[in-house]
């Protein structure tokens, strides 16, 4: 369970800009949650805060009862895995194989276990043919799959996806959505794509100006007045 209590995040030297303001949420491990909101509503910030990648100005985030202290903030892997909005930011190793294996090697996973998990992941995402390719030569869809593989291979308890369908053409998007749909685990999906949110998720959280504006089922997506008020 991810428990977010009175979470506020402020940017700037003296907190001039509030990115999140007193957010309270509880998200179960198996839940598929769509996080939607206008640009600048705080979706990416919330995902980063859940990972412990950015400090909370006030309030707390705990995963399975474990709060992120400063020490844990630097070492948040294993619990929550974040797939970045732009895969170019995430693919920093020369080849696809090395990039996907990066997290396992960083965490001193044995060579035998690394090979096993890599084989499994490459097969599951149908990207075995890409493993020796240089990351910068991949297409947008291939980069997205490689970035997802790099996170999934670490077997995070909670999967966080930041605009996973951006930069994808319709076919690549369909393939990616089908892949997400086939995952056994739950995830939190920050997206502007209402169709994807409706198809993949059972719960919708709408953010507006850093606050939780609405929280409910996918029926919220059909409420045009609400969506309009949320700036969507």
């Amino acid at each position: 369970m991810i428990e977010i209590v009175n979470l506020s995040v402020e940017y700037g030297v003296s907190g001039q800009r509030s990115a999140l303001s007193e957010v309270n949420l509880a998200i179960a491990a198996a839940e598929r949650v769509a996080l939607i909101g206008a640009n600048g509503a705080g979706k990416s910030t919330l995902l980063l805060a859940i990972c412990g990648a950015i400090p909370a100005s006030s309030g707390s985030v705990s995963i399975d009862g474990l709060p992120w202290t400063k020490r844990e903030k630097d070492n948040p892997h294993g619990k929550a895995g974040l797939v970045f909005q732009n895969p170019d930011d995430q693919l920093f190793m020369p080849t696809v194989y090395e990039d996907i294996a990066f997290g396992l090697r960083s965490n001193n996973v044995s060579v035998v276990e690394t090979d096993k998990r890599m084989e499994e992941m490459l097969t599951r995402l149908e990207i075995a043919h890409l493993k020796d390719r240089m990351c910068h030569t991949l297409s947008g869809g291939e980069k997205r799959l490689a970035a997802l593989a790099g996170v999934l291979v670490m077997r995070p308890d909670y999967l966080l996806l930041d605009e996973p369908a951006s930069f994808l053409d319709p076919r690549a998007k369909r393939r990616f959505v089908a892949l997400l749909d086939s995952l056994a685990q739950g995830f939190i999906l920050a997206t502007h794509d209402m169709d994807i949110a409706a198809r993949l998720c059972s719960r919708v959280i709408i953010l507006k100006e850093g606050k939780v504006f609405a929280d409910g089922g996918t029926g919220l997506l059909d409420n045009e007045a609400l969506m309009d008020q949320a700036g969507l």
Binding site: D89, F102, S106
Partner: peptide, 20 residues
């Protein structure tokens, strides 16, 4: 962002490098 991606996959100092 690249440094963050490294940290989130367990490379705390964003410098140490893994190798085959």
């Amino acid at each position: 962002r690249v440094s963050l991606a490294m940290k989130l996959r367990g490379n705390g100092n964003a410098i140490a490098i893994t190798s085959t």
